[in-house]
Nucleic acid binder design. Structure first.
Lengths: 176, 176
DNA sequence: TCATTTCGTTCCATTTTGGAACTATAATGA
DNA sequence: TCATTATAGTTCCAAAATGGAACGAAATGA
């Protein structure tokens, strides 16, 4: 079974990795968020082959994460610009960067960190609950399955049949 | 240039994708966070080849994201357990899932969503500022470069020389 | 006009995957 | 006890993806 087959599974993470979970795509998006716009920008900065870059950009455009716009008004030269959907991926990059800054640099000074313009301070991006504002982490967060998935699980004779969903279902609660 | 070469660049995102930005790794971590523990669990659920799975698990253990523990007390059979470093990757999964739920399901019912145990509500994981609690997004968040990186940039004669950092440096401010 | 920039495509060698079978040890059960 | 099954991989091979380099064509600029 291929990775890409997981994009069809009823799981938001699988669908998301199907679109952006690829090895180069997250780096392309990082650079787009930092201001890279043109084919050759991405190519020079990332050093990936032009073949693979063309492939990735094409599929990012198809998925409406990037769009092709004139590099300069009136020009036919083009640039790749993040859509709203694409800009909305920034929290993923923030989460990766924050984890990395916490765990991968030991005591060494950090090369890059984040600044929150609204409060004008250095910030550590933190995942919070939209309802109560409390911090979310593996210990206080659970996945719940919607009715569709619950039905699928109920119709399985043997528990392991449910594993063709792609993920372990045993510890997932049902949404009430 | 290979993707893996970016793990050496002075950028937290590049280092993080070097460790977990791989195509299968995020799905392996999703399942680990949902309770998968043993080799065959991962293999059956994800359907990836045993060869690739063994490779990925080995490197996750090397990076101290998973550790090998007895599957049952006293047994030599083993299980893979998330370390603190590994559990700390949950926000990355949360961010991916939240983006996915927002953008990839149109009006269809969501198969999985998140529940915050502390406030007992369905939650949409939101990236917030550690200092002021405000929401972080592409519009109000900037990267700043530390002194190391600023030095490298200053020593470049031509602006595009700085591109061997792997990312566009032109719009990145300096930390004061 | 002529050189240069930009955005790809094409070709080929190397690497990585997917699929299946195979091995070795540990646990289980009759 | 002894056969059976579960578990955690390894090995082999064909197919797919990647890396490197060269090539092409349109757009731009001097």
């Amino acid at each position: 079974m291929k990775v890409s087959d997981h994009a069809d599974k009823p799981c938001p993470v699988a669908k998301a990795t199907g679109q952006v979970g690829d090895t180069w795509t997250l780096l392309i998006l990082r650079n787009a968020l930092l201001g890279a716009r043109q084919f050759d920008d991405f190519q020079r900065q990332l050093g990936l082959t032009r073949h693979v870059l063309a492939q990735r950009l094409r599929s990012l455009v198809e998925m409406d994460i990037l769009k092709r716009v004139p590099a300069r008004p009136g020009s036919t030269r083009l640039a790749y610009q993040l859509t709203s959907k694409g800009r909305d991926l920034q929290p993923v990059i923030l989460a990766l960067a924050n984890w990395s800054n916490k765990w991968l640099f030991d005591d060494k000074p950090l090369p890059l960190s984040y600044h929150h313009k609204d409060c004008a301070q250095a910030t550590q991006p933190t995942m919070c609950c939209s309802e109560c504002g409390g911090e979310l982490h593996a210990g206080n967060t659970a996945m719940t399955m919607g009715p569709q998935v619950a039905n699928i699980v109920d119709q399985c004779e043997h528990p392991q049949d449910a594993e063709n969903l792609g993920y372990p279902v045993a510890f997932i609660a049902r949404a009430k």
